[in-house]
Simulated assay, not measured.
Amino acid sequence: MKPVVVMTDSEKTQTDEVEIVHIPLIGIEMLPVKSDYLHRHYDWLIFTSKNAVKLFFKVYPTITYDKVAAIGSKTAEVLNDYGIIIDYMPTEFNQEKFIAEAAGRFKGSRCCLPVSQKARSLMYDHLAAQGEVDRIDLYRPIASRSAADLINAMIEEEKVDVLTFMSPSAVKAYYSHYNPVRIPVIAVGPVTRDALLRVQQTCVTPDGATKEQMIKKILEMREHNEF
């Protein structure tokens, strides 16, 4: 039988390799448009999520820019769908690697950083030290208690083989109500892994921060009888 995997993010995934049960722990709520930014020009637009891309071009269509930077393959895919050329993307999909590989790329630049209200300040702090940066909070994450309850019920009924997390927000949405689980837990990357470790949840991470790599890791674990 295929392993049953609960995916807790907002983007549905299709694969024939595992049986995916899609239960999003986080929704989003758009925040008011900041009219002062509507007609500004930037040297760089910097995107750290696909949600930020989709909402930014919807609500700030008059902002102009010279170059675009991005973190993550999914973010890049959405930008490509918009026909936007990416001028800089790190080799690993996290803010730490983005900053390390950028070196002095943003020095003296005017940057726009459209993000979630709950986004870490690391990127903003780096850009502010290099030049000017406007952080635009586009949306805020909304935790779903009903989703957490459903996941917990499925785990108690032994209907789930693996639980996955794509963000610290999702980790908080579940573990604010429930204790660490005994089934395997997969974190998409180091930031989410650290959030899980803080709530005493053991977990593993794939070689790359993508769902494809997460599924590959799950299949490897099944092959080695780890669950």
Results as ranks from 00 to 15, higher is better:
S169G: 14
A170D: 09
A170Q: 11
A170M: 13
V171W: 03
V171Q: 01
V171M: 02
K172H: 14
A173E: 12
A173W: 11
Y174F: 14
Y174I: 04
Y174E: 02
Y175R: 00
S176N: 08
H177F: 15
Y178V: 09
Y178L: 05
Y178I: 09
Y178F: 13
Y178T: 12
Y178N: 07
Y178C: 12
N179S: 13
P180T: 11
P180L: 11
P180W: 13
V181S: 12
V181L: 02
V181A: 00
R182E: 07
R182D: 09
R182S: 10
I183L: 15
I183T: 11
I183A: 15
P184G: 03
V185H: 10
V185N: 10
I186C: 01
I186A: 01
A187D: 06
A187G: 05
A187L: 03
A187Q: 05
V188Y: 04
G189P: 00
G189S: 06
G189E: 02
G189L: 08
G189W: 00
P190M: 03
P190R: 03
P190K: 12
P190E: 06
V191Y: 01
T192R: 14
T192M: 10
R193V: 01
D194M: 09
D194C: 03
D194H: 14
L196V: 08
L196D: 03
L196H: 05
L197R: 11
L197W: 14
L197S: 10
L197M: 10
R198T: 12
R198H: 15
V199Y: 06
V199S: 05
Q200R: 11
Q200D: 12
Q201V: 11
Q201G: 07
T202N: 13
T202E: 13
C203R: 00
C203N: 06
V204L: 06
T205E: 14
P206W: 01
P206Y: 00
D207P: 02
D207L: 15
G208M: 11
G208A: 06
G208P: 00
G208N: 09
A209H: 14
A209M: 06
A209T: 12
T210I: 07
T210V: 00
E212Q: 08
Q213N: 13
Q213D: 13
Q213I: 02
M214N: 02
I215C: 00
I215R: 00
K216W: 03
K217S: 02
K217A: 07
K217R: 13
I218P: 09
I218F: 08
